[in-house]
């Protein structure tokens, strides 16, 4: 590598930082949606770099479905505190009080009420005009054509037929009052890039990503961790100890574990390079209906 060439990771890093600064400069009230996952961890690190030596000029917002792995919540709070982030946690109070959850209401209803609706409530409550998300184009077919600056109408809806052309590194940030932009600074990163960057930068991540003996049960064809006592007893009773890790993190009843021995970042990367299944196959929610991701995105989900 000569002295005027950047590695692929440094190029991706520079591109993401450019995007974040553009948003900070052009929008009045941006927010970074923080899911506590590995992509969010990378995204937050990039934001810290972008505004160094200053503080990041926008808050983090976590949409808490109230069904996240307990280790995630622990990690979130200690990370935000350590890095001095302004952290907003929003959950759908009404849904919570009605006891909405995946075991009782199914994944579709749960996702709609506790994630999509909660997100829209949170965005509306604080009047954010731009929201960063950690989604990547390699995750899923419908994301492959999504813009980095993805326009949402005043109902937070995405219209895949009517996207703004996006050229060079010039981003169209013009919105009318009430409209907003979802911004995906990690669009061009792949899952492998994320892991390589975590290794390169030594970014802390939720321990659930590393393989460990954990109590899991088979549920809807996936390995589900027994994370708390809200899991129906007849299911929890079937739990077996297995050495598993998680490729993605979400609501614990909806996120399948994979059997793995990868207990270091190196081993995870190694595993990455040889896996043949896409990471979203471990998310139960995607199996609801055909083209489900595109449908969810139109409705305002990330």
């Amino acid at each position: 590598m000569d002295k005027y060439t950047l590695t692929h990771l440094r190029q991706l890093e520079a591109e993401s930082i450019h995007i974040m600064r553009e948003v900070a400069a052009e929008f009045e009230n941006p927010v970074m949606l923080y899911s506590i996952g590995k992509d969010s961890s990378v995204m937050a690190r990039l934001a810290e770099k972008a505004f160094k030596p200053g503080k990041v000029p926008f808050p983090l917002m976590h949409i808490d479905s109230t069904w996240k792995f307990s280790e995630m919540i622990k990690f979130r709070d200690s990370y935000a505190k350590k890095m001095g982030w302004d952290l907003i946690v929003h959950y759908n109070k009404e849904g919570y009080e009605k006891g909405v959850g995946p075991f009782t209401h199914g994944s579709k209803v749960h996702t709609d009420i506790m994630k999509t609706q909660a997100l829209l409530q949170g965005l509306t409550k604080y009047g954010f005009d731009a929201a960063f998300g950690g989604a990547r184009r390699d995750e899923e077919k419908s994301r492959a054509k999504e813009r980095i600056f993805s326009f949402r109408d005043s109902f937070h809806q995405w219209d895949p037929k009517n996207q703004r052309p996006e050229l060079w590194n010039i981003y169209n940030a013009k919105v009318h009052k009430g409209e907003s932009i979802r911004v995906f600074p990690l669009s061009n990163w792949t899952e492998l890039d994320i892991w390589q960057y975590i290794r390169l930068e030594d970014i802390p991540i939720v321990p659930l990503y590393f393989a460990k003996e954990r109590p899991v049960v088979e549920y809807s064809g996936a390995l589900i961790l027994v994370d708390d006592d809200r899991m129906p007893k007849e299911l929890a009773d079937k739990a077996k100890m297995k050495k598993v890790r998680f490729r993605t993190l979400g609501c614990y009843p909806l996120t399948g574990a994979v059997e793995s021995d990868a207990d270091t970042v190196e081993k995870i990367v190694e595993e990455m390079m040889t896996v043949t299944q896409s990471e979203r196959t471990t998310r139960v929610i995607d199996f609801d209906q055909d083209a489900s991701m595109e449908q969810k995105k139109r409705e305002g989900y990330f």
Binding site: H8, Q11, E266
Partner: peptide, 18 residues
């Protein structure tokens, strides 16, 4: 063997982008 994988990854992180 672990060392080999580390070396491999160190190399892999340094590739460029087209």
């Amino acid at each position: 063997e672990t060392l080999d994988i580390k070396t491999f990854l160190d190399q892999d992180e340094k590739k460029d982008l087209l």
